[in-house]
């Protein structure tokens, strides 16, 4: 089975879907931008407060945090929402008939999600920078690898929640709570003991260094990059294990196609 052709098929499907749901995609970006504007307005009114060190100390920090948060939400929610939608409509069972195994279709979907959310979120970033007048370093060579490392954790959570949704069905509330948990993970500074072992936190800190302080990837502390990567891989692995366990239960109870 050629995994390349599976990836190509998934890319073509998602490209088609993106075109069909264009209005949807744009409006969700616009609403995220609106939320940012509200926060920005709030920050301006308490600007003295901001300078003392809360919310990571700076407006730049907020932009970076918001940028990473948006990526995270896209990564995690695309994965788990799509899984739920496909289980509901019945296409999930057809994906389970793929001879490469569903796990590769899922992996291809995660990759395609990242690629197709990259450009819109970058546009959002530019819009945020333009509105606030704070221009951050757009060093893509340093940024993209760090984003990928950071998002591994989000994909892990996506797989885990997607798996739970297969078995327990109505867990949308958990998804919404998760969005706020992600904000927490991006806001708590990594110097707080133990925080760097949580998903997103360390990677977010490194992205901050690249975008705000202008540090190139190879000048960042290797130990920190390694920690961020290891944390990402571990959370991804845990997510996939949880998904596999849930898949097993779903197949035992015949739940794959029923919602």
């Amino acid at each position: 089975m050629n995994l390349g052709s599976v990836l190509a098929a998934v890319f073509r499907r998602d490209w088609t879907m993106m075109k069909r749901y264009m209005v949807n995609s744009i409006s969700s970006l616009v609403s995220i931008y609106m939320i940012f504007m509200l926060i920005f307005a709030g920050l301006q009114s308490v600007s003295s407060y901001v300078k003392t060190g809360t919310l990571d100390g700076s407006l730049e920090g907020t932009i970076v945090g918001f940028f990473v948060w948006t990526f995270t939400i896209y990564a995690f929610s695309n994965l788990s929402w799509n899984l739920i939608n496909e289980a509901q409509t019945g296409t999930l069972e057809q994906l389970y008939l793929a001879p490469c195994g569903f796990k590769w279709v899922g992996a291809a979907t995660a990759i395609s999600d990242f690629v197709f959310s990259f450009v819109p979120i970058m546009l959002l970033l530019v819009a945020m920078m333009a509105t606030t007048g704070r221009w951050l370093r757009m060093d893509l060579v340093s940024l993209v690898p760090l984003l990928l490392i950071t998002l591994l954790g989000a994909y892990g959570v996506g797989f885990a929640l997607g798996g739970l949704a297969l078995v327990f069905k109505r867990i949308q509330a958990l998804f919404q709570i998760m969005q706020f948990v992600f904000i927490g993970l991006l806001v708590i500074p990594v110097r707080v003991p133990g925080v760097k072992y949580l998903p997103l936190a360390m990677g977010n800190d490194l992205i901050h260094a690249v975008m705000v302080d202008g540090v190139r990837l190879w000048l960042l502390p290797p130990g920190d990059i390694l920690t961020a990567a290891a944390v990402g891989v571990v959370y991804l692995a845990v997510g996939i294990v949880i998904f596999s366990l849930c898949e097993r239960v779903a197949k035992n109870q015949g739940l794959l196609g029923h919602y």
Binding site: S5, G90, A98
Partner: peptide, 30 residues
């Protein structure tokens, strides 16, 4: 391959041809 009962089997937002190409590619038929 299979058509399963009581579910959609297809992506409703894609055309017939797009569905055919997608699902056959998953089977390496293209």
């Amino acid at each position: 391959s299979a058509v399963l009962e009581g579910s959609r089997n297809l992506y409703w937002r894609m055309s017939v041809w797009e569905n055919v190409l997608f699902f056959s590619s998953l089977h390496g038929v293209a």
